[in-house]
Nucleic acid binder design. Structure first.
Lengths: 108, 108
DNA sequence: CGGAATCCCATACGATACTG
DNA sequence: CAGTATCGTATGGGATTCCG
């Protein structure tokens, strides 16, 4: 049977909040990428993502930071410390739930 | 260790294809809704989704149909057959993978 | 009621150029 | 290399109206 009145249905997922972050074009890619590779720098992320423009990548990374899914880290290197990106614990939790979905999408 | 060269990283999820469908603002909601309630008519979907505009809802439904995730069905009713929407087998598969994610998003 | 048509706006995204 | 600044475009999405 199909409910027909207004309050018969409970919306399982409000579009506000995390959805607008996760819904961003590259967000899922980035979270999965960091979940797979750990700490990654700006350049490799950009090159890996089919050449996303730096402006867009920065914007998405900032949105992910604000959502506390990704954090910016400073790692020591040969000639001075460099910046990189990694998942937060929260981001790792998301990646975990995202994995079956991403695999399924890949398999189409 | 973090890879630094171009081909060291494999993008786990190209943004093309299903992602632009699933990334739509209401797509996940609709799939979850149909997965939960079965066959639902246009009106209840719209009312349930915080009053999404009919144009937007139609657009999203059409996109989901084109992606073969949702199908339009005709069900017999008291005064003539009426139209409604339901998941395809493919859509049910997506809903299944979506469920842990949606639950996690809800729990925030 | 279930849409289609139209209008309008916000913004996401890309391209490019530039800087520390 | 890691961004920032600017600009232009495409389009997603809301509001409204109208129709069978």
């Amino acid at each position: 049977m199909s409910p027909t009145r207004a309050c018969d249905l409970v919306c399982p997922c409000p579009p506000a909040g995390l959805i607008d972050v996760v819904g961003k074009k590259w967000a899922v890619c980035i979270v999965s990428l960091l979940g797979r590779y750990g700490t990654v720098r700006f350049g490799p992320i950009q090159r890996c993502l089919y050449g996303v423009s730096p402006a867009t990548l920065t914007g998405t990374l900032r949105a992910l930071e604000r959502a506390r899914l990704v954090r910016r880290v400073t790692v020591p290197s040969g000639r001075g410390p460099v910046r990189a990106y990694a998942l937060t614990a929260r981001g790792a939790g998301l990646d975990e739930r995202l994995r079956p979905l991403v695999d399924w999408l890949q398999a189409s």
